[in-house]
Design a protein around this nucleic acid. Sequence first.
DNA 1: CGGACAAGTCAACATACGTTTACTTGCCGA
DNA 2: TCGGCAAGTAAACGTATGTTGACTTGTCCG
Lengths: 210, 210
Amino acid sequence: MTAEPPVPATTETGGEPAQRRRRDAAETRQLLLDAARRRFARDGYAATTVRDIAEDAGVNVALISRYFSSKEGLFEACLRAAGDELGRTTGQTPADRVPEAIARHIADPGAAGLSSQLSLLLRSSGDAGADEIRRGVLVRSSEQLAAARGWRPDEPGSEQILLRAQMAIAAGIGVAVLRSSIWLEPLSSASEHDLVGPLRDLVDALLPPR
Amino acid sequence: MTAEPPVPATTETGGEPAQRRRRDAAETRQLLLDAARRRFARDGYAATTVRDIAEDAGVNVALISRYFSSKEGLFEACLRAAGDELGRTTGQTPADRVPEAIARHIADPGAAGLSSQLSLLLRSSGDAGADEIRRGVLVRSSEQLAAARGWRPDEPGSEQILLRAQMAIAAGIGVAVLRSSIWLEPLSSASEHDLVGPLRDLVDALLPPR
DNA sequence: CGGACAAGTCAACATACGTTTACTTGCCGA
DNA sequence: TCGGCAAGTAAACGTATGTTGACTTGTCCG
C-alpha cells in the first residue's frame, strides 16, 4: 500500500469516513462540535453521553476533555456556535421579511436549521454561562425585530412593542420546537410555503407594519 | 404526649410537614407525584435523580420503585396527570375565550400552571409511551380549537385551519417555555392582563372568528 | 392486648458516567 | 533519515445513579 495522497480538508460529506482521516486537530475539533450539536439538540444535555458524541464523530472519547476541557465546555462551545449563527442570520434579515425568514429557517430540516439551533438553545444544562448565552441571543433578536417596528429603548410607551416582538419570537420557537420534537400533522410536514402565510398573519397582527 | 387527633387528609399546604405524617400510601404517592412533576418540569428527565425527588417529597427513595416500579414509570404517571389536567382545562374553555384562557394559564406561576405542565410535556425522556401521551394532548387541544373555528375532519379545504390552530397552540407553548426557562424582560414579568391583548390579536389573526 | 400485614427504612448492588493517566502512532522539520 | 512532539488511543479510576432485598416500625382488626 502506498501512502494516501495528502488531500486537504476533504469536508467529509455524508456518513463516516471510509478512508482513514489525516491527523488534524482542527478538523477533529469540528467533527466533535457537529456531533455534539446534533446530540444535544435532539436528546438534551444530561441525556447525552460523551461516549455517544465521540462515537458519532468517529474519534476517541478522551479528546473531548483535551479540546473542550469537559462535557460542559463542549456544550458551551456548541451554544456559542449556535448563538453566533443565529445572530448572523437575524442580523441580515430586513425587517419586513421577518415572516419569510422565520418560515425558511423553521422549514430547514438540516442540522443548521433554526429548529435544531433553537432546540439546542432551549436545553437547560444547569450551567450559568449557558443561560447567559441563551438570554443574549434572544434579547438581541427580539430587540432587532422590535426596533424595526418602532420600538426605541427607554421610550416609555413602546415597551408594548418589545413585549409583542418577544411573543412573535416565542411563537416561532414554539412552532420549531413542536416540529422538531413531536410529530403533529399537518404542522410537522408543512412546507416553507405552507408556513409563510400564517406566519405573516401572526407577525403582522402582533406588530402592525405601521 | 397524647396521640395526634386523626385529622383526615390535612392537605399539607406550604413547606414540609413539621409534625410527622401519618402512614398513608395514597398521600405518599401524591407527594412523590407532585415533587416529581416540579423537578421534571424544571430540570428535565435525565437531569433529575430519584434521590432529589424523594428528598423533595420527604419520603424514602425506595418508595419510588415500590409505587411506580421505576423512575420511568413515575415520569409516565406525571405525564398522564399533566395530560389529564390540560385536557380538562381546554375542554372546559368556550372557543371564543381561548386567548383569555391561554393568558390565564401562562400567567399562573404555580406548579399547576400551564407553563410547568407544558415544559413537562415537552421534556423528552426517550420513552415511546411518553411521546404518545404528548402527541395525544396536543392533537386533542388543537382539534378542539380548530373545530371551534370551522374545521371539520376529512373536509379537504379546512386542513389550513387545523394547521393554523396548531400554530396558535405552538405560540402559546413558545411563550410559556420562554417565560419558564429564560428570564426575558418584559415578557417574563408580564401579567395576565398584559398578555391577553397580544394573545387575542395573535389568535384572531391566525383563526378569524368568522 | 397482640399479632399480622402494610408502610417505610437501610444498606448494598451493579452499572454507566465523566475524567485522567500512561502509552502509542504518525507527521514534519532539520 | 530520524528524533521530537503533537495527535490519538486504551484502560482504569472514582463517583453517582437506579434498583433491590432484607429489615424495622407503625396501625388496625380481632
